[in-house]
Amino acid sequence: MKLRFIKKAPGRPEYQVGKIYDFDGPVAKTYADKYIEREWAVEVGKKQAAATVENADVGGQAKQASDDDAGDQTVDRSNIEIPDNWNELPASDLRTLADSLSDTPTRNKAEAIAAIETELARRAADAQ
């Protein structure tokens, strides 16, 4: 089972918002079910999981993306929590958050801020 985290999981800093992680085996499935139940993560469909491609990011962690699930990301993005104090986050956290909200990876803090502001404007327009 593959999960995409849509909210920060308290006490689990290894899981980053917007990234996809494997949960295989009975114990892992139990954890995955809890993360879904607590609305921290959503299951990535089998078609999406098969199309997942791993790329190494700057920090050396695996960054996973799927071209096949682009249509589903609008729905997922609406569920991604943007903290009230997002503009006080460190640049690396801003970029991680922005990358989870955008189709285009951000290259710097300014692009991250623009991506987050764009998503906030989209949400405000949808609310009206």
Rank of each mutant, 00 (worst) to 15 (best):
Y21P: 01
D22K: 05
F23C: 00
F23K: 01
D24R: 14
D24F: 15
D24H: 12
D24M: 10
G25Y: 11
G25N: 08
G25K: 11
P26T: 08
P26Y: 03
V27Y: 11
V27A: 13
A28Y: 03
A28T: 04
A28W: 08
A28M: 05
A28V: 00
A28L: 05
K29E: 11
K29R: 14
T30A: 15
Y31N: 14
Y31A: 09
A32C: 02
A32H: 01
D33M: 07
K34V: 10
Y35W: 02
Y35N: 05
I36C: 08
E37C: 09
E37L: 08
R38M: 08
R38W: 11
R38V: 04
R38H: 12
R38C: 02
E39F: 08
E39I: 04
W40V: 05
W40E: 07
W40S: 06
A41E: 00
V42F: 02
V42T: 05
E43P: 03
G45E: 07
G45M: 03
K46H: 06
K46Y: 09
K46D: 15
K46T: 07
K47H: 15
A49C: 05
A49M: 02
A50D: 14
A50V: 02
A51R: 04
A51L: 01
A51Y: 02
T52C: 14
T52E: 12
T52R: 08
V53G: 05
E54M: 09
N55V: 11
N55Y: 06
N55T: 15
A56N: 05
D57A: 09
D57M: 10
D57N: 15
V58T: 15
V58F: 07
G60F: 02
Q61H: 07
Q61S: 13
A62K: 13
A62C: 04
A62N: 11
K63H: 11
K63I: 10
K63Y: 12
K63L: 06
A65E: 09
S66H: 00
S66Y: 01
D67H: 13
D68F: 14
D68W: 11
D69Q: 00
D69W: 00
A70Y: 02
A70M: 08
A70I: 12
